[in-house]
Design a protein around this nucleic acid. Structure first.
Lengths: 200, 200
DNA sequence: ACCTGAACACCGTTCAAGT
DNA sequence: ACCTGAACACCGTTCAAGT
């Protein structure tokens, strides 16, 4: 046995980190494994599936390992906004830790809204509606954060290559929002909307 | 003058509606205009810009036309959660009205978080933090909704081609959440978190 | 100003064939 | 079981050249 499915996922994550999502092609993943592109299809049916496996890997450490038996009874939910807040922060950090991780996870996760470990855990803490709201907000916010960072990195590159500070490209665009702090405030808004429980 | 930039955007939106985002290539847009692919680059610097122009078109009717002068003073915000709620519904409907519209708009809009007409208007109604939270939630929720619909349409296609109800593919997957109703509930959670104002 | 034609450097996926 | 080699039907973008 030369390569396993896990080898393929690992190689794909290396390519993602090194080259970004737009360059994370099947052909480059194959090259990372010193293998022909067609060999990948022995381990994975298509690129979409590979991306979903990568997404699982990226968020693997986020949700506690405790197995949940069955869907929680809505009436049985014991609200715990503090734990929900921490889980959302962990999720966001996990996505931000990998280049273009938010895009990878958000795309794959939206595809199976309602059946992820993180969503199940969140639902136990704040109910199904709150869980969905928190999850969607966290995905979109992480995507925006990563996009802003990438734009800043690109702008820094341009500036280095001859564009002096104060040049047309840099004039008029107001200072960007701090999306790390903004996330916490948005999270607090949603949590505050979930009920009268105080959770500071 | 044979084609204007607006002709290109219109053609691209037609291709998007007819073929979906993954098939909305520069080459197909060119074909829609009976023109060589290279001709498009006379009107638009690259595909990313074209997608941004399409996004602007999709949400053009959402924000009121009233010109806003300057950034609203945070202290001067007169909370109006009811108006914010309606604006979010309008935004979501505009995205859902176009095939893959949520993806197109969310990607382009995340790129310029903080400088869209819709966000400015929302910020007037609920403040900057509330506006960002509502906007991100609405984008992600619309993306999830459109993805679920597409999956359902695909599933229906499969079922039509020989898969009887009760077949392996359809057994075990629980009934999907109604994301149209779910959106309203999530919106109410966020709005409730924005302050003590009642808005029913 | 707007477009053609040809090219460059890529894609995802399939499939027969090898070991 | 795992992989190669070759092919198919595509991509976005550039650039000289036409009108």
């Amino acid at each position: 046995m030369r390569n396993s499915r896990n080898d393929v996922v690992s190689a794909a994550l290396r390519v993602l980190e090194a080259q970004g999502l737009e360059n994370c092609s099947m052909r480059r993943v194959a090259a990372e494994l010193d293998v022909q592109p067609s060999a990948l299809y022995h381990h994975v049916p298509n690129k979409q599936t590979l991306l979903a496996l990568m997404a699982d890997e990226i968020v693997a450490e986020v949700a506690p390992v405790v197995a949940v038996r069955g869907v929680p009874d809505t009436a049985a939910v014991i609200p715990n906004p503090g734990a929900a807040r921490e889980l959302c922060h962990r999720l966001r950090n996990a996505m931000l830790a990998v280049r273009d991780g938010a895009d990878v996870v958000a795309t794959a996760a939206a595809f199976r809204l309602g059946r992820s470990a993180v969503e199940d855990r969140l639902a136990e803490l704040v109910g199904a509606d709150g869980a969905r709201t928190l999850l969607l907000y966290t995905f979109a916010q992480a995507q925006a954060t990563q996009m802003q960072r990438q734009a800043e990195a690109f702008g820094a590159l341009l500036a280095q290559h001859g564009t002096a500070p104060g040049d047309p490209a840099g004039v008029g665009d107001p200072e960007p929002v701090d999306l790390d702090e903004s996330f916490g405030r948005g999270l607090d808004i949603v949590l505050a909307g979930l009920g009268p429980v105080s959770f500071t």
